[in-house]
């Protein structure tokens, strides 16, 4: 298989996302958010999306603004997140924001559910005293939008500092992974001992535009 993974724009890389898709977006408090991909997603005419995204709580980021915009535009039916920023529209009783259901999940369990999916397991049980026999199942993800620091043309990827967060695990879990990278490098540039996400998990690559870097 030799297929070219490079796409000249976010729009081209994301054009086959359809209504009802489950989409994972990397990021932690603004670090490691694929801004170009998120902004493109917000402009697409899609509905009934299921979004897995760690919504920032300390600061407002472009990512969180776009997610709120998409909720207002009624594009998201379910938001799966470890945290949700205080929002006047959020009803704690119904766990709804407008027409979007918010499903809270602890970071540890979210990461593990993604790994269960990525590793092909059927489910896991923690060795725990109190909660005991609760089974954790995998979480399906059609598309992962991740943020890379450097990616080579095969898709091998490294991250930068705490921007790593959910990118590696989402890349493994998703059916299609789209990496927005700051730096597209030649094959052989990255040290094989230091590559965090092997190219087999990265299907499409888009270079961060100067514009979304400034934002």
């Amino acid at each position: 298989m030799t297929g070219n993974k490079l796409y000249t724009s976010c729009a081209l890389a994301m054009r086959d996302i359809v209504n009802g898709c489950t989409i994972g977006i990397s990021g932690n408090e603004g670090g490691g958010e694929p801004l170009g991909l998120i902004c493109q997603l917000a402009t697409m005419h899609l509905t009934n999306l299921r979004i897995i995204y760690n919504v920032p709580v300390i600061k407002q980021t472009i990512g969180s603004r776009m997610i709120h915009q998409m909720i207002s535009d009624d594009k998201i039916s379910e938001l799966i997140t470890p945290s949700y920023p205080p929002s006047e529209a959020f009803d704690v009783n119904t766990k709804m924001v407008k027409n979007t259901v918010v499903n809270f999940i602890d970071h540890s369990y979210l990461a593990e559910k993604l790994r269960i999916k990525g590793a092909g397991l059927g489910g896991i049980f923690y060795s725990s005293d109190s909660i005991g026999d609760k089974e954790y199942l995998g979480l399906n993800m059609d598309v992962a939008l991740i943020k890379s620091d450097k990616t080579d043309t095969l898709g091998n990827t490294v991250y930068s500092g705490s921007n790593r967060n959910y990118s590696p695990i989402m890349a493994i879990a998703a059916h299609t992974t789209i990496a927005e990278t700051n730096d597209l490098v030649e094959i052989g540039t990255l040290d094989p001992e230091c590559i965090v996400t092997p190219g087999i998990f990265v299907n499409r690559i888009v270079l961060t535009s100067e514009k979304s870097r400034i934002d």
């Binding site: 603004g30 970071h107 540890s108 979210l110 790994r115 705490s162």
Partner: peptide
Amino acid sequence: NTEDSNGNYVTLTNGSVVMGSSEIA
């Protein structure tokens, strides 16, 4: 390129490591 849990920029001390969310989990 690195932030703590409060969103402050930080400089890692020698011997510190960066991990992804699943490794923290």
